[in-house]
């Protein structure tokens, strides 16, 4: 199942691995390929807007370029929309200040915040408002709770409107042709461990398909094994001296820089291998290079989208 042919992608990963960049890049790539795409951040404290170089995004989607929409989840707004569209409550005023009601619902009732979030995303899919909905989801620690909420609520709430709602949500979420989780990671110890744990937890606690792993910030291999000998030769005192005669005294700094680059790359190889060996057979791993960019923002997002496109064979 090609990644961009699904309808709903939850992009998750340990904090700091570039989850939002990758979610934004997937959105950008999909839109470029002609898909009407919505990118959503899971909470309003996010900084999705920065990745597209636009002003703040709100609950109501903003079209940030042709076919690409961005929104920010706001569970209170989601509840209002839900009540209006699904429960057909005619006069919201009659139920008192919604903010207070909401405080209760969201804080007291477990899973309600999660279901309002997941519910909104699945609803956009069900109503065919977009070809693809990309969610910048919660971090690895919380995403299982978020994705399992409809089932949890289904177990807790035996009757009522919510019960009916969770049924169709579960149908969409558990259909691998429609929904997939993308786990973003980097070749370091904790992110790889958390990725492997998350795959196991998603498998054990939900019926949601993992679509792909994105290995982000893969450092380049400077030279092949047979060229290593040449590098070592250059790194020797007389090698450096001979080179310094040609390019100046800065050589020692350049060689130290290269040592660092080689060390950083090598120290990450075991984690690349550990991930490759640890994931279930057939689960694709998309490698994205470390981008030595000056800025972040939309320029960086486009470069990641390009790299992603290359990896996906577009």
């Amino acid at each position: 199942m090609p990644l961009l042919d699904r309808r709903l992608l939850f992009v998750t990963g340990k904090g700091g691995v570039g989850k939002t960049s990758v979610a934004s890049a997937i959105g950008l790539l999909a839109a470029k390929r002609g898909k009407r795409t919505l990118v959503c951040e899971s909470d309003s404290k996010g900084n999705l807007a920065d990745f597209f170089g636009v002003g703040p995004v709100a609950f109501g989607p903003t079209e940030i370029r042709k076919g690409l929409f961005a929104m920010s989840m706001d569970t209170e707004e989601s509840l209002k929309e839900y009540l209006r569209l699904q429960v057909k409550v005619p006069m919201l005023a009659r139920i008192g200040p919604l903010a207070h009601t909401f405080d209760f619902v969201a804080n007291a009732a477990p899973g309600v915040k999660e279901i309002l979030t997941v519910g909104k995303f699945t609803w956009e899919v069900r109503e065919d408002h977009y070809d693809l909905v990309v969610v910048d989801a919660s971090a690895t620690g919380h995403v299982v709770g978020q994705l399992a909420a409809p089932v949890a609520i289904n177990d807790l709430v035996k009757v009522g409107v919510v019960r009916n709602q969770t049924d169709w949500m579960i149908d969409i979420l558990t259909d691998p042709a429609q929904t997939g989780v993308v786990i973003v990671t980097v070749p370091e110890e904790m992110p790889v461990s958390e990725t492997l744990e998350l795959i196991a937890r998603l498998d054990a606690e939900t019926s949601i398909d993992v679509a792909s792993i994105v290995m982000n910030r893969v450092l380049p291999e400077l030279f092949s094994r047979n060229e290593e000998e040449i590098f070592d030769r250059l790194d020797e005192p007389d090698g450096q001296a001979a080179l310094a005669d040609l390019v100046g005294d800065g050589v020692s700094g350049v060689m130290s820089g290269a040592d660092l680059a080689v060390t950083l790359r090598r120290s990450r190889v075991p984690h690349l291998n550990r991930l490759r060996d640890g994931v279930p057979p057939g689960l694709p791993i998309i490698n994205l290079p470390f981008l030595f960019h000056r800025s972040h923002g939309v320029r960086a997002t486009s470069r990641i989208a390009e790299a992603l496109g290359d990896e996906l064979g577009y």
């Binding site: 619902v105 709430v157 035996k158 009757v159 009522g160």
Partner: peptide, 9 residues
């Protein structure tokens, strides 16, 4: 609230 969440809940 009853309609949305169910009385038991």
């Amino acid at each position: 609230a009853d309609r949305v969440l169910g009385t038991q809940f």
